[in-house]
Amino acid sequence: MKALVEYLARALVRNPEEVTVEEEHLGDRVILRVHVSDEDKGRIIGREGRIANAIRSLVYVAATRAGVRATVDID
């Protein structure tokens, strides 16, 4: 899941070297915190959050396969 989010985030932004993803486990929940440069925030969130929501949909699939629930936070 972390690798998926990193892959997508790095492919979407202009400064891929500034992308970091932290993974935190709370029981069967996984929280993925994505950090990108200020300049790239819009590129990863998208108009009306559309890109962020598309990322969440794909992470949901990966999480379902892994038997966990995942949330994606974009800081």
Partner: peptide, 25 residues
């Protein structure tokens, strides 16, 4: 089927993100 999702919603999300990636590149 998981990647298609309920009423094709995940498929639509994947298509959308592919297009954003293609446009970026």
């Amino acid at each position: 089927g998981l990647l298609i999702g309920r009423r094709g919603e995940t498929l639509a999300a994947l298509q959308y993100i592919i297009n954003v990636l293609v446009a970026t590149k």
